[in-house]
Amino acid sequence: MRLFLLLLVLSFALQWVLPWWILAIVSFVLAFWLAKKGSGAFWAGFGAIFLGWLGLSLFFHLRNDGILTSRVATLFTLPQPWLLLLVTAVVGGLVGGLAALTGYFFRRAWVQK
């Protein structure tokens, strides 16, 4: 739970000032430091980044009345703009989850040497 909350807060805060891929670095480092199991690392990384990106996407969607989301959804031939928000959150969640899982496995490999 601590890993999930730290990932959610740190990645959400750092993405306002740094590039999007900072979430992978944050997920890797925090899972390296805190993760107890591989599945826990993946799901904490996936869930935290999924919720963070979904919240951020929803914020921008509501801020401009869905104009940009509708146009980009049309560009990707998605029938509804909310599907773009969901796809964005899933992609971010996968990046965060796989980075956290990598951090966990890296620590396991490091400790076994």
Rank of each mutant, 00 (worst) to 15 (best):
M1W: 09
R2F: 11
F4S: 09
L5N: 08
L6S: 07
L6G: 07
L7A: 02
L7Y: 05
L8A: 15
L10A: 11
L10C: 10
S11G: 09
A13E: 07
L14S: 09
Q15V: 12
Q15R: 15
W16G: 03
V17R: 12
V17L: 08
V17E: 08
L18W: 14
P19Y: 10
P19K: 11
W20V: 12
W21H: 07
W21I: 12
W21D: 02
L23G: 05
L23D: 02
A24T: 13
V26A: 05
F28T: 04
F32T: 04
F32G: 03
F32E: 03
F32Y: 15
L34V: 08
A35T: 07
A35S: 11
K36A: 11
K36V: 14
K37C: 01
K37A: 11
S39P: 00
S39Q: 13
A41T: 06
A41M: 10
F42A: 03
F42P: 00
W43C: 02
W43L: 14
A44E: 01
A44D: 02
A44G: 06
G47A: 12
G47H: 06
A48K: 04
A48D: 00
A48Q: 08
L51F: 14
L51S: 06
L51W: 10
G52N: 02
G52K: 03
W53E: 02
L54S: 06
L56D: 12
L56W: 11
L56K: 13
S57C: 09
L58W: 15
F59S: 04
H61F: 14
H61Y: 15
L62G: 15
R63W: 14
R63M: 11
N64A: 05
I67R: 07
I67N: 02
S70M: 07
V72R: 07
A73Y: 04
A73T: 02
T74W: 06
L75F: 15
F76A: 12
T77S: 14
T77H: 09
Q80P: 01
P81W: 08
P81H: 06
W82I: 10
L84G: 05
L84W: 07
L85Y: 06
L86K: 02
V87F: 13
T88A: 10
A89E: 03
V91E: 04
V91P: 00
V91S: 06
V91Q: 06
V91R: 00
V91L: 10
G92R: 04
G96S: 11
G96F: 12
A99L: 02
A100Q: 01
L101P: 02
L101A: 15
T102S: 14
G103H: 04
F105C: 05
F105T: 08
R107D: 05
A109Y: 12
A109M: 10
W110M: 12
V111R: 12
V111M: 09
V111P: 01
V111I: 15
Q112C: 03
K113Y: 10
K113I: 13
K113S: 13
